[in-house]
Design a protein around this nucleic acid. Sequence first.
DNA 1: AATTTACGATTACAATTGTAAACTAAAATT
DNA 2: AATTTTAGTTTACAATTGTAATCGTAAATT
Lengths: 152, 152
Amino acid sequence: MAEEERVEITDAEWEIMRVVWTLGHATSKEIIEVLQVKKEWKPATTKTFIGRLVKKGMLLAEPQGNKFIYSAGISEKGSVENAIDRLFGQICSRATGKTIADMISKALLSHEDVRLLQAALDAKTDQSVDVVPCNCIPGQCQCKNEHNINCH
Amino acid sequence: MAEEERVEITDAEWEIMRVVWTLGHATSKEIIEVLQVKKEWKPATTKTFIGRLVKKGMLLAEPQGNKFIYSAGISEKGSVENAIDRLFGQICSRATGKTIADMISKALLSHEDVRLLQAALDAKTDQSVDVVPCNCIPGQCQCKNEHNINCH
DNA sequence: AATTTACGATTACAATTGTAAACTAAAATT
DNA sequence: AATTTTAGTTTACAATTGTAATCGTAAATT
């Protein structure tokens, strides 16, 4: 039952979570090493983020002797979903399709990815509507008709 | 020549920009009204963000009598692209395809959108690769082979 | 045993962000 | 002309974020 995931993850915190999500579990030493190379963070910096994430429950710290083994307290899937919702909450709902199309064009995809995309798209075909309403202006403006403006 | 757009836009600032992008140009009064309804922001709050955006050059203020007409100093397209790059910079490159597929499944799309998506996907078909490398861990790990970890 | 190292906890600190009140000057209304 | 409304500017202020040094203690090394 998809754990409570209304949590906000900052950019820096994402870097920590990515390491843990990828490794499954890790010591602070491992996390520090990865980010020292990848982000050129001082060990102290990484320690700060680990501490904050543990306090927020996004990282679980299992005692192991006098230190800890860290693992993810929130799922990668749910977190990515949140990030996606945030992105699409920011842009005009009418621009969603075009935006996703741009992503596809830019992305490096595997053959398998392409199949996945095709399947998702096929499933959409009979669920698409004539006009997606704009949500930039309250009242779901009819733009051209109502305000005589070009709403995308 | 796509204007310099390495600028960061915060969530709150996006709300202001959306109004301006949608209307083309607007008075502070108009922006304030929209966000008073949509976000329940006090006029003073909206004023603060307008001021900050103008200072950063993201909003242009054309003097009109004793007040201003505001318009966008950065393009919506470029800004959306930045937001997308940021999102995909955060998640594992290997998860890009699956993530986009999820977006499609969730999105409300128009028939036209579906056609757009299909076109973008068709263009991808002959450009896809066998395996997208993971970028969560430095050195483009080979995961299973190299570190014996499940890299997604 | 003495010393060095490692790791977690505490403290620091400036910049950014969200949220808004207060102030000021010009314009509109009474 | 006096008053009220507007719009822009200045100031406020706590929380968050990025970035890190320092401190204390337990463990490993010499």
